[in-house]
Write a protein that binds this DNA or RNA. Structure first.
Lengths: 310, 310
DNA sequence: TTGTAGGCGTTATCAC
DNA sequence: GTGATAACGCCTACAA
């Protein structure tokens, strides 16, 4: 302990927790800091957590770590947390409802001051400090992307190009962000939009597309760029050229979208802002400040996978 | 506290920590559990950590959460940890050396029982319980993929096809896994392999490829599938057909590799096994058992981006 | 088979 | 401006 290196005991606490402002002499403070540095002393987090009842850790629960969209979200959240002196504990629910409940149990027992749920519906009784990402349970703080606008931009783009038979390849996840896409399309195109769903897996998305193609759409709007990749696969299999025979629009603007052949037209969003925003809202909640839900802007990136129908 | 709901106090501890075996009567145990359930009582992790000196948390430090390879690694690690009752705290170093030091500091102060460093060189004095992933510092436990074999498989494949001018598009990260690829290539092809490096970014990989093409290779081996994507971009820009004019081999077999046009020949590895293996080794270390480093097998997946040179 | 008591390293309150 | 001292909630001897 630094106590014997210095002269005192609770003084150390005052100094190291930054609460010595105007209470500890500059000289004593220097001595303490020096001793701490020499001994490589660090306050014990567990003891602090026990005493203060705060863990300086937040939990992030995510449906699927494997999805490329998730990385930047985590980066945003983690960096914002880092700046605020918080650690991020991560739970991957792996699309498994059982694990979802179980992992939440674990987290609740854990030393987290709050939680962010990414594309996961927060369980009942998650406590006060919860923010939902890309999900918007009533009465709960949330951060999400302007899905409605994104869908509208994409569909209007297709409409402007002259398409009339537009299909929808959706995620099979029953999350709000995806339900919104359905509604937004219905608002523009009516209720009889050809619709198939698939998990975020190229091959499965490919077979779902094959089913969708039976309705002979001239364009397909996809809930996500991976699903769009499945459309590319299906088009290749059927000998359909993109965009001549089939226009494709994705969502997310994942990095590989520009590498696809042809480069994918897609709705771009800023995943880091999503993560960072979620943490900031959570921090407000933790600090007892009023937390405002946020809706992040989107942008349509027109590349070469869309063209007028033949 | 469940104490008053039941009858006792330390009895609760015995029951809930599973150490009541043959010491607590079945009836008492039932009473305690019932009371705990009713009150929604959970042992306080901070107190337990303080008392036992163990946090049941491990840290995972990663160069770049944004890389698609990372997701499955985390999933493997997280699930193995989950099964063992551990939480995973994550730090994204974001390719930033400053943050690397700083985040480590934070972790060390944090309540982690051990660390996994993924493509990050573990700092000095990280303690006893450290395992390196895809890095192999002398005298430290590590888990990595059989890079040598993967590189050899890829290069031999190209050689068998009849290629003689084989270029190497490498990662600009100075990590062991990438140095090994250089050495393995040199062993098969000599020291004058055309070589360029790039970060894991399609556009930058594209411009690096453009430089590499000045040596007029008929095939390019890439350290990673994202870099291979950059080669596709460059080929498109130069009007080179893959594989007729240029063969391309990647590494990792990321999901999108099969969606590229043409589908990418690449070295497949199992990222989940990497993460899970790392945690298992770490758990051995934490448990005071001898930890064996592991080398995971690889496999060459031949798709359509490789063909004999014209 | 169960209860009692002490201490893990902090922070916070209160004397000095 | 600084030093005692009491808790935070748990685990673990040890006593009953």
């Amino acid at each position: 302990m630094a106590r014997r290196a210095g002269v005192s005991q609770s003084t150390v606490s005052l100094v190291l927790s930054g609460k010595g402002a105007g209470r500890i002499s500059a000289r004593t403070e220097a001595v303490v800091r020096q001793a701490a540095a020499d001994l490589g002393y660090r306050p014990n987090v567990a003891a602090r957590a026990l005493r203060t009842g705060t863990a300086r850790t937040v939990g992030l629960v995510v449906t699927d770590v494997t999805h490329p969209f998730f990385g930047p979200v985590l980066r945003g959240a983690q960096q914002a947390a880092w700046r605020a002196g918080y650690a991020v504990a991560l739970v991957d629910v792996a699309n498994d409802p059982d694990r979802e409940r179980a992992s939440f149990e674990a987290l609740r027992a854990g030393p987290a001051d709050g939680f962010m749920f990414f594309t996961v519906d927060p369980p009942e009784g998650s406590g006060e400090h919860v923010v939902a990402i890309e999900v918007q349970p009533p009465g709960m703080a949330s951060v999400r992307v302007d899905t409605d606008r994104g869908t509208e931009l994409a569909v209007r783009h297709l409409l402007d190009l002259g398409h009339t038979r537009i299909g929808h390849l959706g995620s099979w996840l029953d999350a709000e962000t995806f339900r919104r896409r359905i509604d937004a399309m219905a608002a523009l195109l009516g209720d009889d939009v050809p619709y198939e769903t698939a998990p975020f897996d190229y091959r499965e998305a490919c077979t779902a597309t094959l089913r969708l193609l039976e309705a002979h759409p001239t364009a397909i709007f996809c809930d996500d760029d991976i699903l769009a990749g499945g459309v590319y696969l299906a088009a290749r299999e059927r000998g359909l050229r993109i965009p001549e025979d089939l226009s494709v629009v994705g969502f997310d603007d994942l990095p590989f979208a520009r590498v696809f052949e042809p480069p994918l037209t897609t709705v771009a969003i800023d995943p880091e802002a999503l993560g960072a925003g979620a943490f900031e809202v959570l921090l407000d909640l933790i600090g007892g400040r009023p937390a405002e839900s946020r809706v992040l802007p989107v942008e349509l990136v027109v590349r070469e996978s869309t063209a007028p129908p033949r």
